[in-house]
């Protein structure tokens, strides 16, 4: 219990540094620190599958973000209605926190979940699927429709990136063709 508070403080500190620092590269690295904190928190919460996935995803996400930030100039606009914007943002966040606090009163206490559905999985999952890892059994046997939907979303996102980035379709008629494509 104590280590959860420590890890959450660590992550919030990393997130605040990532938001407030001026240099974009430092900001991206602070996000990496937050992601590693998330990975450790998954380990404390007894979710080793999520910890492995979060670790490797964090590395790839960091590489992509560094690719986007490197070799670009950093124009920072400080003009504008500074006081008005900050006030509106903080008011919205306080409203959000208040409403979510009311909603949290109905959530079961931490450490004592209801587990109405999961009880069936825990009792019969090993006998019916034969997989020792129950998370694998849930995502690929009981809830395989979810995984199918996830695959569809991933396919759509990859196609979106390929369509946004590629140069082939932007050629006009009179334009000279370049040597390389994609």
């Amino acid at each position: 219990m104590f280590e959860l508070y420590f890890l959450f403080s660590f992550m919030i500190a990393g997130a605040i540094i990532a938001v407030t620092v001026k240099d974009l590269l430092s900001s991206v690295i602070a996000v990496g620190v937050t992601g590693l904190g998330v990975c450790l928190t998954f380990l404390v919460l007894k979710a080793p599958d999520l910890a492995i996935t979060q670790l490797v995803v964090e590395v790839l996400c960091l590489i992509i973000l560094i690719r986007a930030t490197i070799r670009t100039d950093l124009p920072f606009a400080t003009t504008g209605r500074w006081f008005f914007n900050t006030f509106i943002t903080l008011a919205f966040i306080i409203l959000f926190l208040g409403i979510s606090y009311i909603a949290l009163l109905d959530v079961p206490a931490f450490g004592y979940p209801i587990m109405k559905v999961a009880r069936v999985y825990l009792e019969q999952g090993f006998i019916r699927t034969g997989a020792a890892n129950l998370v694998s059994a849930v995502i690929l046997d009981y809830r395989a429709y979810d995984t199918l939907g996830e695959a569809t979303i991933l396919f759509t996102a990859v196609m979106g990136v390929l369509a946004v980035i590629r140069k082939k379709g932007r050629k006009k008629i009179g334009e000279i063709e370049e040597g390389q494509d994609e």
């Binding site: 919460l45 599958d49 996935t53 849930v138």
Partner: peptide, 12 residues
């Protein structure tokens, strides 16, 4: 055991 269902949802 802890609840495997939220872990499966978060994994995707």
């Amino acid at each position: 055991m802890v609840d495997p269902l939220p872990q499966a949802l978060v994994l995707t």
